[in-house]
Design a protein around this nucleic acid. Structure first.
Lengths: 131, 131
DNA sequence: TAATTACCTACCAAGTCAATAGGTAATAGG
DNA sequence: CCTATTACCTATTGACTTGGTAGGTAATTA
């Protein structure tokens, strides 16, 4: 299941895109509009900045802004930052321990297919589709 | 993410179907073949019995068997027993608290669509496809 | 009646998640 | 230059879930 962090991250990205400005958007305002604790959002936005999906600046009129046009962001790249994994099962997750039954496992191909289905959906979905 | 319980449940169902017999299949043997702790499998198989996907009997030559042909089982009905939810996000999960922003939420339709994608895949996939 | 098997209740350690607390550093406007 | 504003940093907490174990009782058949 995708956590609140992931859902919030997406909403933050959409919120910034919606402002449709080249100015920095303050987190305080995003938190108010989205009705999410600003303190909590800080931990989420940090991940977005670290991954270069957002750029932030301090001080008066500071805040965050996108680094590329909304149509160039896909959901997968946003969500993978906040989620331990986006795989539906450990079997197809690169971060999980490898299963030694993988080669003989009758269910593995199905999990692999399902994983593909989800990944493709998320990679195809672009941020501008939410505006 | 689908838990080990769910993955094991599926493997148990396949294992029983594979034996291709009308006799009861003992959990001891399933555990050995699948290399899963029998004790742990007990908790999983109980859910399958409670939901009438399997029927079990005690005593010598006891064990579990299917109640219908493998082609009549779909993955969704099996996995939903072991997972708290099969929804990718709380927003589209009937068991989770309702989000009051649902009606105005820009992301909700996308989550709904993703949920549908996954559910449909799992409901279409039948047990006999693994034999 | 004895072996075999399912079935039942309880428990535990580790990990994850959602969220809060209390700061420090950078920047722009007056 | 100073002060308000804003991002950024580190640590902590309680609740919950997961994966798995322990130690039994009840049912069935040879």
């Amino acid at each position: 299941m995708i956590s609140t962090k992931g859902r919030y991250a997406l909403r933050v990205m959409i919120d910034i895109a919606e402002q449709n400005t080249n100015n920095y958007v303050a987190l305080k305002d995003i938190a108010k509009r989205q009705d999410i604790s600003k303190k909590y959002l800080e931990t989420i936005v940090k991940k977005l900045v670290d991954a270069n999906l957002l750029v932030g600046t301090s001080g008066k009129n500071g805040g965050y802004k996108l680094v590329k046009s909304a149509s160039k962001y896909n959901l997968y790249e946003i969500l993978k930052l906040t989620e331990r994994t986006l795989s539906p099962v450990a079997c197809v997750d690169s971060k999980s321990a490898k299963c030694k039954r993988k080669k003989m496992c009758k269910t593995y191909p199905m999990w692999y297919e399902l994983n593909n289905l989800i990944s493709k959906y998320l990679k195809k979905k672009k941020l501008n589709e939410f505006l």
